[in-house]
Simulated assay, not measured.
Amino acid sequence: MKVSGKLSYKSAIIVNDVFFKDIDELLREYFEKPKYSAQLINGDEVEFESVSELISYDNFSNRAIKTMRIGFGIGNYIRIEPSMAFINGYKSTLEMGFEVENNDKSEEIKRKVNDLCDKHKQSFMYTAASRFTLMHICILLWGLSFISNLNVLITHKTDDGTMSNSTIVAAVTVGVVIMLLISAALSWIIKQYFPAIVFYLGENIKSVEKKSKTKSNIFWCIIVAGIVSAIVSSFFN
């Protein structure tokens, strides 16, 4: 009997040397020697002879690891890359497919891999932020813009009680421009500071640590900017 097992891990994860050592040991317990290959940010592909060679990789700048594939026998694989979904941004960060002799072994392997990933997953808030796509941002800001413009259109009338065309055009234009600017800024922040997968190896460690120190500052800047924006909007209204 052959059982084809599949696993999809849904939380954002940080992949470091401990992760690769643990997954290497786990796979060797059930399968043949794992083979590691990576796609870099610049589009190049790199194959590693061993896990020790992988964790010593420089991983810097445009030669940093973007996605990873681990093969451990014919048809057996682990893909560490975001599997995209239209609504939620991504539906998984790690996918595994394998063949074993029975259901018990399949469930055992999936449980161990899932437990291993749990040890390296990001916080719930981080995962939620990494799933916040440009579509979500646009919907949110469209709603806020509509409410803001509705308030302007209701309160700004001509002497005869009707709204002037210039008021309508100005309100809608300002709302759309502000929405596009904020959408672009938030989308960039999410992409830079809340990636679904972080390869915490080599020179990239310094970059990740630097970004983690500025996340809280960015968060508070957004909160303050929102408060100031609300105050200014109320003043002009």
Rank of each mutant, 00 (worst) to 15 (best):
101 E>D: 08
50 S>Y: 05
41 I>F: 13
15 V>I: 14
100 V>C: 10
41 I>R: 11
12 A>M: 10
42 N>F: 03
107 E>Y: 15
109 I>F: 00
64 A>H: 07
37 S>H: 03
21 K>C: 00
47 E>P: 03
89 G>I: 00
33 K>E: 15
97 G>L: 14
58 D>G: 14
87 I>T: 08
103 N>K: 07
41 I>E: 08
54 L>K: 00
15 V>M: 03
67 T>G: 01
13 I>H: 04
67 T>P: 11
105 K>C: 07
11 S>G: 00
68 M>F: 13
62 N>T: 15
17 D>G: 06
55 I>P: 10
25 E>N: 01
95 E>A: 01
108 E>H: 05
47 E>Y: 10
103 N>Y: 14
20 F>A: 01
82 P>V: 15
33 K>T: 13
98 F>P: 09
92 S>R: 00
81 E>W: 10
91 K>M: 11
67 T>V: 05
74 I>T: 15
93 T>L: 13
85 A>F: 10
78 I>P: 10
23 I>G: 00
63 R>T: 15
67 T>A: 08
67 T>R: 09
54 L>C: 00
18 V>D: 13
54 L>Q: 00
39 Q>K: 14
11 S>R: 03
109 I>P: 09
61 S>V: 13
88 N>K: 03
48 F>W: 11
79 R>M: 14
65 I>H: 07
15 V>W: 00
105 K>E: 08
55 I>T: 10
45 E>F: 08
23 I>C: 01
64 A>C: 03
